[in-house]
Nucleic acid binder design. Sequence first.
DNA 1: CGAAAAGTGGTACGGGTGTCCTGATTTTAC
DNA 2: GTAAAATCAGGACACCCGTACCACTTTTCG
Lengths: 221, 221
Amino acid sequence: MNALNPPGSPDEHTDGHPDEHTDGHPDGHTDGHPDGTTPRTPSQERGRRRRATLLNAAVALLTEGGFKAVTHRAVAQRAHLPLAATTYYFASRDQLLAEAFAQLVETELATTRAWITRHGLPALTDQVATADRARQLGLWELYVHAGRDPVLQHIARRWTDGCVRLIAETLGRPENDPRVRLLYTTVSTLWLEHVVEQRPLDEARALLGLALTQATAGRTP
Amino acid sequence: MNALNPPGSPDEHTDGHPDEHTDGHPDGHTDGHPDGTTPRTPSQERGRRRRATLLNAAVALLTEGGFKAVTHRAVAQRAHLPLAATTYYFASRDQLLAEAFAQLVETELATTRAWITRHGLPALTDQVATADRARQLGLWELYVHAGRDPVLQHIARRWTDGCVRLIAETLGRPENDPRVRLLYTTVSTLWLEHVVEQRPLDEARALLGLALTQATAGRTP
DNA sequence: CGAAAAGTGGTACGGGTGTCCTGATTTTAC
DNA sequence: GTAAAATCAGGACACCCGTACCACTTTTCG
């Protein structure tokens, strides 16, 4: 669950049993140097900061150019760290991407939650309009890429589940309520369409309004 | 409009004015050798077949590995043609990808139309279940990638518009009817979710049913 | 028929990548 | 204090890529 920790949080996995934590970890975060070559989350504060810097660089590059732009050299350069740091702290490019994806998902969910808390669900199209489009594209690119990668797939499901949970809470409904899920389908497509196709948002606003009307059946959210 | 022609269809662009067809062509199809270096659709039948073979190879690779797998060498090898053929018949990798995307979109739209004609809209989840998932992934990957590429973006819009048209025709409604577009949002998300996340389709079927009920307001499709 | 245009295909250029190697330095543990 | 472990960073390995170059062959056209 380390990928869920904010950068800089204490690491619980430095207890000398690294091997137990590298099997089937769904979010791609791997700890431990079983033979001195597999990276771990560092025990020293300095190393932890360097690792986080690399990860943030990866997210930035993901935003700017999609996952193709996340190469070891680009990440190292963006983080002003030597190339070897990338392989010291991350087992592979795939791990780097997975952790970047996980971070992006959590960040976007938190941002969206805050916006809805403040402005309400009907204003979600306004958040989509003002949010960093390139970052959204990075997220969606990895979302689709997750279809070919079981590790990323778990993270993708977390994105969907997080969005559904958000809507459920806002509507005061259980997450498995079909109306919640139906509303999510509309929100998801409108979001993706805006990010990819850059269509005007007038129609999206109207559709969101209609979908909300149907989901709440006359109750004002 | 050559990208809309089936492979092997007669080419109308060999009339000696190739330069007029290379500006702002939204689907990335370029004709003409203005200085002997820019590819055109060949005038000879053999060349046309070779070009089509390369394009089909690109689509196959897109299916198997996503757009990252569509390299000149992989395409040439898959098509059993020399590497130089790829640059002879296509101006760039981008053009190859654009045409592969366009072809994939048209194929999928046609396949979906045939299915709906035969089985009806409520059975759309069954088509999603039985269709080649990897091919769908290829399509969606390029769809999202289109967010960063104006040429592909036009093709992505064609995908969306084609789906909306399909639903509108099935419901006997105009394409700008909000209920048509709302139903499309649900269908789109359920499709993407299945392809990416591989969730069970039971819930998708139920949601599609609910969405159809709301879209038709008691009228049986 | 001959020249020009189109087609063919092997090769190379200049660039890039993920990963690994290894010696030096710093930190930790006994 | 010393040895082991962790950290650090420069460099290299093996591979890959898109694109361009160029000589040769085939087809077209005047």
